[in-house]
Design a protein around this nucleic acid. Sequence first.
DNA 1: AGTCAGGCTATTA
DNA 2: TAATAGCCTGAC
Length: 267
Amino acid sequence: MEIKLDYFSLKDIAESGQCFRFKKIDDNSYSVVIRGKNYILSQKENVLNINCSESEWEDFLSSYFDCDTDYSEIEKLVMNSGDEHAIEAYKLGSGIRILRQDLWEIIVSFLISQNNNIPRIKGSIEALCRVSGRKAWGGEEYSFPKASDISPLLFEKANLGLGYRVPYLKEIYEWVEENPFWLDYLKEMPYEEARKELLKRKGIGPKVADCICLFGLHHVEAFPIDTHVKQLIKKYYPKGFDFKYYGKYAGIIQQYLFYYEIKESTS
DNA sequence: AGTCAGGCTATTA
DNA sequence: TAATAGCCTGAC
């Protein structure tokens, strides 16, 4: 079906680094697996085309693409900030949305992401999905394995290129298996509390915890600081970045800044 | 060939 | 408490 959407760019979303599972088909279409179904998306101007029914869109895809957040408010916030660099970055990435992705998938993905590069992260995740062997519905891709779909031994046996992260992943799998309601508890917690809870797990430090809060729990006040963000703050905000101004939307601003930075470095 | 990647843990002082 | 070596390994 076709959906008219403003403040929405499939390309920006797919390439903003928040989701490692978008596969480019051509310039304006992508393949992605959401909730075990393989969707094919394409966009022309402000119309998104997606192979789903109306009820699928209403039931969860509209939420997945964060249609209940008013992005015009974010635009106003940035445009009135007087923050020249944020305005510049916003112009490039104004089509980015913070997706409401599956929490478990985000925890595993960002554990893998540490001290790692995006192509390699994507490769590991792809291999993990493939080796756990559940084909997504309606396509050629594989769905992301639930903790119960996988044996911890898999991490060592299969050649997933995970390196020293293997013990972290085994630990989190075992933890979630033994504490089946942990993910649900996390979803109930406010940002600070969830962050603190995540930091208790091996391999989850401040940066990964903030990514999980932002991308897996939709706490858009979380502001993950990675090497790129560290560098851009040094470059554009020598006096320091004013987190307070952006308040509860700091994480969305982080995405614009981050996207601008990676785009700049690859062009 | 060497550096660096969307960092974290463990060990020092 | 603060600083920093070491870590898997592929992409560039």
